[in-house]
Structures are given as C-alpha cells and as structure tokens.
Design a protein around this nucleic acid. Structure first.
Lengths: 227, 227
DNA sequence: CCCGCAAATGTGGTATACTAATAACATTAC
DNA sequence: GTAATGTTATTAGTATACCACATTTGCGGG
C-alpha cells in the first residue's frame, strides 16, 4: 500500500495578501507600533509592505469593523484612540464573557482537555523562568485557549480571542512585573481544580478576581503612559 | 411636472458606496433573501448593483468579519450557514451580555433615558397594531437600543447590536406569532420598572427569561425551516 | 496679516489586465 | 463503460492606471 505523505501542515498555508496585511496592521496597532491618531495612508502602506492598494484597502475595511481604525470620510483611516474609557469598556465585557466561559467549561470539559489544561499550566510555569516576556505571554494565551476551546462555543471563542488580543500590550506590561508570578500560578492551579471538580460558581469567582486584578494594573499602566 | 426625488434621507451624509453595498447585502442576508450557501459573486453583484468590483469586495470583507459570509480561498464568498448549533452559540453569548447590559443600565441610566425608554415602549405598543412585521421589529430594536445606549459602554453596544442583528430573521419569525404580544408588552413594562428602580438582579432575571423564551421558539423555527 | 486661489495630496471609485486556482466538461486510455 | 487525463470557462486575487472630488498647503497679492 502507498502511504500518503503528510502534506496537511504545509499544504493549507495559503493566506490572501489582504489577511497578511490585516494581521500585520492589527498587530502593529495592538502592540503600539502604530500610535493612536496616526494616519494609515494606502499608497504609503502599499509601498512599505510591497503590495498594491487593493489588499491594503480591504485590510483597512476589516480593521474599521473591528474598531481599531477610525474612518474619516474622504480623508481616510487613522488608528483609533485607545482611551482609558475604551479599555474599561473592553474589560467590562471580557469579565462577563470570561465568567460565562469558565462556567460552560466546567460543564463541558472532557478528561483529555483537563490533561491538556494541566499541561498548558505546567508549560506556563516553565516559561516563567525564561524571563522572555513574549514567550510567557504566549504560554498564557495557550492556557486560556484550552479553557476557551472546552466551551465548544465557536462564537464565544471568537469574541474572547478578540477581546483578549485587544489588551495585548497591557497584558505584556502586567507580565513584566515578576511579583505577580506566584499569584498567577496559584490562580491557574485553583482554576484547574475548580474546573475539574465542576464547581462552576467558585471557578467563576476566581476568574472574575483574576480579571479585576488586571483592571487596576492596566489602568495604572495606561494612565502613566499617557503622560 | 418635475418631481423632486426623495433625497432627504441620503443627502445629509455622504456614504461611501462600499457601505451602501455592505448594508444592502447585510439586509438581504439577514432577511433571508440571500440564502445560506448561496454564492456571492463579485462581477454578478457589481452588475446587479450598478457598481464596480471594488466596493463589492470591500463590503464582502466586512461581512466576512461579521461572520455573515464564509470565505473559501480562491473560490469566493458564500452566505454563512446558520445552523442550530451556531444560533445556540450566539444566543448563549447574547444571554450573558444582555444580562451584563441590563445590570449596567440599572446603574447608569439617566432620567432622560428612562423617559426615552418609556416612549420607545409606547411606540412599540402602537406599532403592534399596524401588523407590519418589519415596523414592529424596528420598534423593538429601538427599545433595546435605548437600553444598550444607557450602559455607556461602546464595546458592549457594538457587540450586542451585532449579536442582535444576527438573529434578525428569527426574531421576525417570533414576532409573526401574535399570541406573544401580551407577554412581550408585559416584559417591556417589567423591565422598565426594574430598571427605573435600579433593581439589578430582578431586571437581569426578566431579561434572561425573555431570551430563554426566544431560544425555544427560534430553535423550533430553524428546525422546521431546514426540512 | 489674511484672504483667496491654485497646486499638491489623498481618498473613493472605475476600468482593465493578468495570474492562478477551481470546477465543469470533453477526451483519451484501459 | 469507467477511470484517468486534458481542456476550457469562470472567478477570485492582485496590480495598475486613471478620474473625480475633497482637503490641506502654500503662495502671492491686497
């Protein structure tokens, strides 16, 4: 019998240019490389990224709908202001959805996913020692992704990923402070415990506290940054 | 005799063609004129709407991000399937956000907004007699919009509007059943009462029930429609 | 100093051309 | 007859040129 080569990884890697541009600009905005108020000029961006105006324009349309850029009619797009207010709004929504998420996860998580979660937590613990903030942040994202996925609710997963990403640069700031690491690890452990026992309300409480902690830190960060 | 065309709606504000197309397609999808699985072909749409490919493409990008169309690489866009599962997902998220919403509204609503809300409810009551489903649905939307706006949380407003619209055609189905009108009116009254007294938990309970009611009806609708 | 006009710039939209992928159909080979 | 193969039409994806129009800029004259 002829054995099929394993193409499934490399084969499906086509991404339209517009999506490459979209992701690039999105990251640049979320990481603060493109600052609020900065204009996004089509030709200039096209030249810089080595593509034509078409993919740029289409990427900007998506950023517009996501609220990351502000369209001014016949003037073009500029990076939307990320104010204290707008972040607070995002966190308020995220808190409610994370609460829903962890409750659903309690009901729907499988044994395999609990293992996955434990592994992700261990991996996070390991990366903490690396002192590489980007790596730590990514391990944290993977931990949360397992919880998100366990809900089996695609819409919820999509929205949480989006809200999570909107706070990227502030989460980074939060993780720069090594003093919070023990607390983080403890929270992760508690969340796993509660989820695996199916104790919804307790798990939700921890998650909410987890987010409320972040609120204060993020708000401090944004206030000092804006001066 | 030369009759002035009725421009007064569109004259005031300039709307880019892409947004006109976006709204047109969006409505067509939500109202079921474009059915799930139906392909959105650029040239064909361009001819039909009398514009070039560019605005069509940009509109499709936005529909893509909203989840109303599904992109198949190098094949194009088709109207997204609305499965029982995907609607259930949406409703699950919407329930949590509506709950958050009404609680925030209880805290933050102003006297003027309570008046507005009362007025919107009365207007809804009036339109019920008109038997014009579209008009009824719009009056219902306006009622909810007032509650949304009272939260002063832009992100929440944006998300709720989106989730709300994703269910448009099923809400229409719900509203075709005149037997639910008394119940709806009663719920509106109760919500206004609870909100104006600031009774968060009670208000949240009513809203959740309101949505849970819809779940069963919507699920029935989608099941019968898919046969 | 400022007023107004014109040039420069940039978006919004159209038209067109080309490539590459897909799907439907036709043709060939077995 | 059917499976494999080739062909063709269609369409998305991208690039590019061009025009209309709005906004900004800057210059020159009062």
């Amino acid at each position: 019998m002829i054995v099929e080569p394993n193409f499934n990884v490399t084969m499906n890697e086509y991404l339209p240019l517009r999506d490459v541009v979209f992701n690039t600009l999105r990251q640049a905005i979320l990481r603060g490389e493109l600052k609020p108020g900065e204009r996004l000029m089509e030709i200039q961006l096209a030249n810089k990224l080595g593509v034509s105006r078409t993919p740029i324009r289409e990427a900007i349309r998506k950023l517009e709908l996501e609220g990351l850029v502000l369209m001014i009619p016949r003037k073009g797009a500029e990076v939307a202001d990320i104010t204290e207010k707008s972040l607070k709004d995002v966190l308020e929504v995220r808190r409610a959805l994370e609460e829903l998420c962890v409750k659903l996860t309690c009901d729907r998580i499988t044994k395999e996913e609990i293992d996955e979660l434990t592994q992700a937590a261990e991996n996070f613990k390991k990366t903490l020692k690396s002192k590489d903030i980007t790596e730590i942040a990514e391990a944290d994202v993977r931990f949360h992704d397992v919880i998100y996925a366990a809900t089996k609710n695609q819409k919820l997963i999509q929205l949480l990923n989006n809200l999570h990403e909107q706070m990227y640069r502030y989460r980074i700031e939060y993780l720069k402070n090594e003093e919070v690491y023990p607390k983080l690890l403890k929270e992760h452990r508690e969340i796993i415990d509660r989820i695996s026992c199916g104790e919804k309300e307790e798990a939700a409480k921890i998650v909410c506290e987890h987010i409320d902690n972040q609120v204060t830190v993020v708000m401090d960060t944004i206030r000092t940054k804006q001066n």
